[in-house]
Computed example of a mutant assay.
Amino acid sequence: MENTLNQILSEIKGMKTDISDMKTEISGMKTDICDIKTDICGMKTDISGMKTDNSGMKTDISDMKTDISDMKTDISDLKQGQRRLEESQEKMQKNIIESLGGFTDRIMDHVDDKTGALNKRVYKVESDIERLSRQ
């Protein structure tokens, strides 16, 4: 009987050792779980920050798309303006050439008129001199 009691006591001591080891392992697991919770909290914060950054990037991209659209409109307007300027320049060159031609014709007519009048006066003077020299 004493053997049996010693054997039971020995078994109980083994179980106490096993329970003590389990308590140590559970304590380590609790520490690990606490560390995991802290890491998860940090990850949640990081994900929240990434969502905020992503939202900011979406806004920036939207703004860039609007700016690009505005630039396309501006470029289109500039091209139309350039085309109108080129057409106007061609018309202006033609008008200048036509005006210069008209002015040249008027100047030539004026010079011809003045030359004709001068020729008449010279002829009259020559005729008067000729007539006076015959007398």
Score class of each variant (00 low, 15 high):
D112T: 12
E86P: 00
K94I: 01
M15R: 11
T73P: 00
K124Y: 04
K58V: 03
D70S: 11
R106Q: 14
L118T: 02
I61E: 09
E130Y: 09
T66N: 08
T24G: 01
S20I: 02
M29T: 05
I96F: 05
T38I: 14
I33N: 06
T66F: 03
D63Y: 07
T17F: 08
G116V: 08
D70L: 02
G81R: 02
E87A: 06
G101Y: 01
N95D: 15
S20D: 15
S88H: 03
D18M: 10
Y123E: 13
R83P: 00
G42S: 14
D77Y: 08
I107F: 10
K16L: 14
S20N: 13
D32M: 04
S88M: 06
N119I: 10
T45L: 11
R131N: 13
T45H: 03
T73H: 05
K94S: 08
K120L: 02
K44N: 15
G28V: 07
K120H: 04
T104P: 00
T66D: 07
S62M: 07
G14K: 08
I75Q: 04
I12N: 13
R83A: 15
D77V: 10
T66E: 03
D109Q: 05
L100Y: 02
M43L: 15
D67H: 06
S20H: 11
Q93D: 12
R134N: 08
S76D: 13
G101M: 03
D53H: 09
K51I: 10
Q135W: 06
I107K: 10
T104L: 06
S55Q: 09
R106K: 13
M71R: 03
E87H: 01
L118S: 04
D39M: 11
M29F: 12
E87T: 06
T115I: 10
T115G: 01
D70R: 02
R83T: 15
E2R: 13
G101Q: 05
E126F: 04
R121P: 00
K91C: 01
F103Q: 06
T104F: 04
I26C: 02
S127D: 14
K65R: 12
E126D: 14
K114E: 03
R121T: 06
D113H: 12
N119Q: 13
D53S: 13
R121M: 08
M50H: 11
K114T: 14
M64C: 05
S76E: 06
N6D: 14
S133V: 07
I8V: 12
R83Y: 06
L9F: 13
M22C: 08
N95K: 07
E126N: 11
M50P: 00
E98H: 05
N119C: 07
T66S: 11
M22T: 12
K30F: 04
L78D: 02
R106M: 12
F103P: 00
K65M: 09
D112I: 07
I33R: 02
S127Y: 11
D32R: 11
S88I: 01
D113A: 12
M57L: 15
N54K: 08
